[in-house]
Design a protein around this nucleic acid. Sequence first.
DNA 1: CAGATAACTTTCCATCATGGAAAGTTTTAA
DNA 2: TTAAAACTTTCCATGATGGAAAGTTATCTG
Lengths: 94, 94
Amino acid sequence: MSQLDPVIHAPNRLRICAMLVTSAELDFKLIKLQLDVSDSVLSKQLKALEEVGYIETKKRNQNGRPRTWISLTDKGQSAFESHVTALQNIINIS
Amino acid sequence: MSQLDPVIHAPNRLRICAMLVTSAELDFKLIKLQLDVSDSVLSKQLKALEEVGYIETKKRNQNGRPRTWISLTDKGQSAFESHVTALQNIINIS
DNA sequence: CAGATAACTTTCCATCATGGAAAGTTTTAA
DNA sequence: TTAAAACTTTCCATGATGGAAAGTTATCTG
């Protein structure tokens, strides 16, 4: 039986993963605006996802400014899918 | 836009609500066995749901033993539905 | 009727998560 | 070379969560 993943379940991280699962990569600023959180909060949530290997970050320039690009890893992708399955099992079957 | 409900989002409480939404009422022991948590943990999670008016508890005997029966209130029902909608919005649309 | 037991409830305690604010770092623009 | 952007880290306070153990209350057993 698939279980909820505590790293993904937290609301902000769930939103981050959901945004990333449909995109190749997104930049820090966009995610921040979308989630409406402070820099420090987003940075910490991304770090939590990176520490378990669910996302990767790459620094690259855009308009002469350093930007961080974030993408889901394969591991993150499948963890997210399992988490969604677990949620569906809870919501539909219970 | 529907938002995640922090009272419902916590994994154990999400499971409790999901179990209750398809049943008229369930007893403490059954929920406890299903969730595989200690008495104290279940009692505290139920209290949290009761304090916001999402569930009701009734004490009634069964086999000469006091039992607590738990049911979703109307408020709890619609809060759960909104929460599920919010989850779906996050997972599908983001 | 007294003690035991079931079925919770509450308290105590330790740990962890989360967030805001502020300070720190790095890179590039002016 | 100073300023600013784009994060990152630290500090701090608060709140959630869980286990263990003690506390309650109702009923069963001898």
